Computed example of a mutant assay.
Amino acid sequence: MKIDIKEYTYPLIEEQIARFPHSPRDESKLLVYKDGQISHQIFKQIGDFLPDGAHLVLNDTKVIPARLYFTRQTGALIEIFLLNPLQPSTVLPIVMDETREVVWHCVIGNKKKWKADEVLEGKFTLEGRSYKLWAKQGEDNAVALTWEGDWAFSKVVEAYGNIPLPPYLKRESQESDLTDYQTVYSEHEGAVAAPTAGLHFTDAVFQDLEGRGVKKSFVTLHVGAGTFMPVKEENALNHPMHSEQIIVSRQFLNEILAQEDFIIPVGTTSMRSLESMYWWGVKLIKGEDQPFSIEKLYPYQDHPPITARESFEALLKEMGDEGQLVGNTEIMIFPSYTFRVCKGLITNFHQPTSTLLLLVAALVGEETWRKIYAEAGQQGYRFLSFGDSSLLLP
């Protein structure tokens, strides 16, 4: 099996990349692909085009200021980019509540200037008082962070860190990004990139959708920096997919089972979450080890016919009294994938030769994605994280 990544590109010029979000959020452009036709709308009109019985699934992760800067006594600047927690747990809510010490796997900028046994020191301010924060290197790019005061790590990183904007924006973060690079429904801290399809939603849009009977549910996938990793392999299947953590509640599963007919994820992270949950359930039904970890090509193996309802009911049964399930996925969705849960997608316009573009192609088809992106370019749509939106209903 081979996916030639060179087939998944299109001309994208710098002027098409949105450096800042549209204001107001819900007046960005909306490309609608429905019944085989393309039309051009405004995002706040999205309720006019959602099918009857639509049930939106949104990712309520919250971006943390994961980019930390420390200055050595020599004046050298060291950048620490938090990727995945290692201690006291790999489960993000536990780590964000920690009040003493955390260890993260990181990308370290200017690492050669940071001596192995050197402890870096910084300062942050909370409630009018100044506190110290220390960073110490471990093995394999692990960094231990300790701090003064009994503050939860979520408060510390919020006070000290910087919002990690996507590298293709080619600008430093600024104060407005603290709100602009969050969805209005963000809640659970832990992502290092925003689920940007949700940036267009406002309270007014949600009120309109509720009045139309459109249901919504929230799942949490903490978006990792790997979402921006370019595909460098000629065969995209050799690309090392990043693993991301998903947290699923009992309430969410019950809501999906109550109205499973027309599930439409908001963003590729919600789609990856929903489809991964299906495969978690398949693993449970098949009695496989490590049921809550989906390898990138697991869906393309031979599996018995299992419905989405059967899979989600298996997850509910496994959940027991815990109230939630926590797992990881590195699922890779590309043309030939059969969607088990999702009937459409709300998403922005993605980078050429990216795994997210492969996902869109898997949903709408090889020729259709090219037609959509060509027309978006001709109609002056803004692309990537702060860009315009699309509603795809194949």
Rank of each mutant, 00 (worst) to 15 (best):
L393C: 02
C106L: 00
D289H: 12
H242G: 09
E187R: 14
P352N: 05
K112L: 09
A236M: 06
I346W: 08
V91H: 14
S89E: 06
L356T: 09
V63G: 01
V219G: 08
M1R: 05
K2C: 11
V219T: 12
I331N: 00
F312Q: 11
P164G: 04
E79G: 02
W147S: 04
G122W: 01
P88K: 07
R25K: 05
V157W: 06
Q73D: 14
V107M: 14
H222K: 00
P299H: 05
P166E: 02
V63D: 00
D302T: 15
E260V: 10
S23Y: 13
S28E: 11
V156H: 10
S270Y: 09
A191D: 02
I331D: 00
S130N: 14
G109H: 06
P299S: 07
D4V: 00
H188V: 15
V156D: 12
S249V: 04
R171C: 04
S89Q: 08
A204I: 13
T227S: 03
T368V: 15
V248P: 00
I78M: 03
T9F: 00
Q174Y: 12
A135T: 03
L145H: 07
T146Q: 12
P291E: 01
P85C: 02
V102K: 05
H350Q: 09
E27V: 02
M1I: 14
V57G: 01
